[in-house]
Design a binder for these strands. Structure first.
Length: 553
RNA sequence: UGCCCGAUAGUAUAAGGGUAGUACAACUGUUUUUGGUACAGUUUGUCUUGGUUCGAAUCCAGGUCGGGCAACCA
């Protein structure tokens, strides 16, 4: 019998909460700030939050944490929604922290009335100095002594646009000597005369993260508020607000964010790559963004599988990008249509083949018997891959060489008889003979060859553009590297093959968007394609045992 | 020299006082009209020192190492 999959620590908490009756059902939330595009790290959080709700019969809200109008924009709102849907998740409610601005304001007033918040006229520098350091306590200033009535009036005036940006803040009155710096009278409201993408110019004061997030969770009755480890110290403040306001006690749980080899995972760095032109945009196929991976040809299913396999824990981690590649190969192997494309053509003439042509049949996907067959034109002159031929082959080379035989995929067995070279000694043509009785499906030759090559008929070859991607950085741990991360950019992360030769079936299948170019890799149609020229992105290579063999020497 | 979080194969992640398991990676083979896929197998691990216990990855104490915390960012 199949073993029950072990639970991660958050699932354990949830199951305990459900079992002991703390909750009848759960509500989670995914709370992006609309100031950038989502990346694979967010996918982990999305799969976790939505996955948990799905698993335990609860629901998940999408809540935009839009408390900082100067960095946020509806462009990001739209891209975030598109990415989540594409990943295969649907939220119960589309919400915004800005929906709660009025309520949040009232919460702040309650704190003031309880003597737990005050308006401070200090500059940010003064506030920073008064905060002390982790090893020395901070101190309060005279503004902390203002009466509740005065604070209430001042706060109302802040809202009423009476003061300039930075001239006043509202602070929670907690403990200037706390070992947790966030509890040293944290700022909870600041003045920003900025246009908000949702509330327009209704407000000129905006709550800080710590005075918006927890309360928003509470308002929505989020049972399990799941975030990343850097918010651990915020939990004290999260709980403090809930306690003092006496509102629904949402609970925060933290897990370790995803780090992955050979890539960066911070919005700031990703934005820098875009702005400085190191990539073509947020959806550049080399980016770790969801939109980039989508464009590259990753499937939502494979990303979900990846997120499932990496697990959820609290320790720092650096996941091998090879696992992501494994997941996408695993899926694409099941669904991708097989096609033949020659990247670096070498002409091959079958000297004993009649001048006519014929149509051969080949399976669309050997892993899927329902996928059917396509026909491929075969003729006297074909292209094969230049590195599928060697004049002086090493041991264990199964491909074409003088006097050697190989099978042409779904066609015939051929034998290399002769080479044609130009003045420089470069091979320009290979002459072969074929075995008419070795035709695929009706082979009576009795000959077994080790190698099978892909090929394309010269007469029917369709030129296509191929974009081959490699890792964007040339070191594993970019996040922890010394110096500027951009020094580690892989200059050869994109290789364009402007004129590869494809079998004509590719022209008919444009609606399909996942392919395996046999023996080469998985590809998908890029949005830059036109009727004049098809453009394909290499999603991932096939595993290549021969390349490994060659490397070993 | 404060507070918080963490430490199990190369990388992740299980084992919740009782045989250290799984996946990826690596390596061997088998199958194969993709040097793909599939299948079989192999190698590699509990940070350290004490303590509790018949028995410790697990519980306790000290240490070491890694990460985080002093934005009017989230």
């Amino acid at each position: 019998m199949s073993e029950e999959k072990s639970l991660n620590f958050i699932e354990e908490i949830i199951e305990a909460d459900l079992q002991n009756g703390k909750y009848a059902s759960i509500i989670t939330r995914f709370p992006p700030e609309p100031n950038g595009y989502l990346h694979i790290g967010h996918a982990k959080s999305i799969c976790l939050n939505f996955g948990l709700a799905k698993k335990y019969g609860g629901k998940t809200n999408l809540r935009f944490d839009d408390t900082n109008p100067v960095t946020e924009d509806t462009e990001y709102v739209e891209s975030i929604k598109e990415d989540i849907r594409w990943l295969g998740f649907e939220w119960a409610n589309e919400l915004y922290a800005s929906n709660y601005f009025e309520q949040l304001y009232r919460f702040a007033v309650i704190l003031i009335e309880k003597g737990l918040a005050y308006v401070d006229d200090s500059t940010s520098d003064e506030i920073a100095i008064q905060k002390g350091t982790p090893t020395t306590p901070g101190s309060r200033n005279k503004y902390a002594d203002r009466t509740a009535d005065e604070n209430k009036r001042l706060f109302a005036e802040m809202r009423g646009s009476k003061y300039e940006d930075g001239s006043k803040v509202l602070r929670a009155k907690i403990d200037m000597a706390s070992s947790n710096m966030l509890l040293r009278d944290p700022i909870i409201y600041r003045i920003k005369h900025a246009h908000h993408h949702r509330t327009g110019d209704d407000w000129c004061i905006y709550p800080m993260y710590d005075f918006a997030h927890g309360q928003s969770d509470s308002i929505e009755h989020i049972t399990h508020s799941i975030c990343t480890m850097e918010f651990v110290p915020h939990r004290d403040l999260y709980d403090w607000c809930i306690e003092k306001l006496d509102i629904f006690p949402s609970r925060q749980y933290e897990f370790a964010r995803l780090n992955m080899t050979y890539t960066v995972m911070s919005k700031r760095k990703l934005l820098q790559l875009v702005n400085e032109g190191h990539v073509t945009g947020w959806d550049d196929p080399r980016m770790s963004t969801i939109s980039g991976m989508r464009r590259r040809g990753y499937t939502a299913e494979s990303i979900r599988e990846f997120c499932d396999r990496i697990g959820v824990a609290k320790r720092e981690n650096l996941i091998d990008v090879g696992l992501l590649e494994f997941c996408v190969r695993e899926h694409l192997n099941r669904v991708a249509l097989r096609r033949m494309v020659v990247f670096d053509p070498l002409k091959l003439v079958i000297t004993n083949y009649p001048v006519t042509e014929e149509l051969l049949s080949s399976e669309n996907n050997p892993e899927d018997s329902d996928s059917g067959h396509r026909s491929i034109p075969f003729s006297r002159e074909i292209y094969i891959e230049r590195d599928d031929f060697m004049e002086a082959p090493p041991k264990k080379y199964f491909r074409l060489a003088p006097g050697q035989m190989v099978r042409l995929k779904s066609a015939y067995i051929i034998r290399c008889e002769e080479l044609v070279k130009d003045a420089a000694g470069t091979i320009t043509e290979i002459h072969c003979t074929y075995l008419p009785e070795s035709k695929s499906g009706s082979d009576t030759s009795g000959i077994h060859v080790k190698g099978t090559l892909h090929w394309v008929s010269v007469l029917h070859a369709v030129p296509v553009e191929l974009r081959l991607y490699d890792r964007l950085f040339n070191i594993e741990d970019v996040g922890n590297a010394e110096g500027d991360f951009k020094e580690y950019i892989n200059k050869n992360s994109l290789q364009v093959i402007p004129n590869a030769f494809a079998e004509p079936a590719l022209l008919d299948d444009q609606a399909e968007d996942r392919y395996q170019f046999i023996r080469k890799g998985y590809f998908s149609l890029d949005k830059d394609s036109s009727s004049a020229k098809l453009v394909f992105n290499r999603t991932v290579t096939l595993k290549d045992a021969w390349a490994k063999e060659v490397k070993k020497g």
